[in-house]
Design a protein around this nucleic acid. Structure first.
Lengths: 197, 197
DNA sequence: GTCTATATGAGGATAGAC
DNA sequence: GTCTATCCTCATATAGAC
């Protein structure tokens, strides 16, 4: 890796944290520069504007998590649709926590980005939505999911629960990321109520 | 209601929309003033600063939804803990959608507010958390919820799914708010998977 | 690649009339 | 209560040296 790439990475990591904590407009380039340990104008060697910075942060966030979800699911045979769903849920939780700064920044800022930025990012978002939609549809067609559920609603409730975890989860001895992921998949798939009887 | 109160309400409604769409720092007082149909300096007759405005929006948001949840749950006997939980979930969904501008603004901006504002608002947040925690604990003690679940994790996953709905749900003939609420309670309580067999 | 120095525009807040 | 006019601070972005 070239030195330039390392600096670029440092800037992005710093930007993710600052954007998450302060929001887009309130984040000053000098905050990002300080965290990345260089001077403000040096940022412009790597990025052409503050908007380009946030756009890269948001794009990386989604791509990383989704990439891991896709590859994890690919390892499970298609004839185990419920197991595929479980793996997807747990992979999503684990990976989004792994770069939680980026995930949380995306969660908070995406909806506030100017329309042109949102438009470019929505391409990936649709791809993600389509992938989860297929996972759910395949499971429902196989009779593994209740037939009377609206899967687009389920998908959004599900992703809401998972994505929101970056807002509150902090790794601890009591609750590992894997425990969190397991709780998520169990709640969504089996529910929290004890089956009657 | 005095005229002053009406204007105050118009300003708050306008502020919720603008803050939600642009974030705190990027929202200009002139945007809020235009939406509320007055001039920028007139805002200062009703509020002493931009920060006071956001703080009132955030406080109102949580109080309204939580107030409705509490009063809805109070109508259900304590010996039906699962039913109480279901009612709480559905009340939370319905009421948070009812003033969706405020809810979405809170969802996006709370974590970005300066520490002193967050601190003051956390009092109510803890109250809300405690209430949901008791709902879950009572149900678990009554044997209605799986004994091996960490209820604080369940609570946060659950509220994440519900709160995130203000980001994506739009009322339609196909899916009423009540349908959304039902889907949420069913997913959380019973899960989406068909019981085996 | 990173720096110092600076131009420039914008928005929160106040003064004071009506 | 709401207005017009204005102050003053501050942050993005650029110029240009090293």
């Amino acid at each position: 890796m070239k030195k330039s790439d390392q600096t670029r990475q440092r800037i992005l990591d710093a930007a993710a944290v600052e954007f998450r904590d302060r929001g887009f407009a309130a984040t000053r380039l000098v905050d990002i520069a300080e965290r990345a340990e260089l001077q403000t104008p040096s940022l412009y060697y790597h990025f052409s504007s503050k908007e380009e910075l946030i756009e890269v942060v948001l794009a990386l966030s989604v791509e990383r998590t989704f990439g891991h979800v896709k590859s994890s699911v690919a390892e499970i045979p298609a004839d185990q649709p419920l197991r595929r769903l479980q793996v997807a849920i747990e992979a999503h939780v684990v990976k989004s926590q792994e770069h939680g700064d980026y995930s949380a920044a995306t969660l908070r800022l995406f909806g506030q980005m100017p329309p042109d930025i949102q438009k470019r990012l929505r391409r990936t978002q649709r791809e993600v939505g389509g992938f989860w939609g297929e996972l759910l549809e395949n499971a429902q067609r196989a009779g593994a999911i209740r037939a009377d559920l609206d899967l687009s609603v389920v998908r959004m409730l599900l992703l809401g629960a998972l994505n929101w975890a970056v807002e509150w989860y902090k790794p601890s001895r009591r609750l590992s990321v894997e425990d969190l992921a397991t709780h998520a998949s169990r709640m969504v798939l089996d529910g929290i109520a004890l089956p009657p009887g």
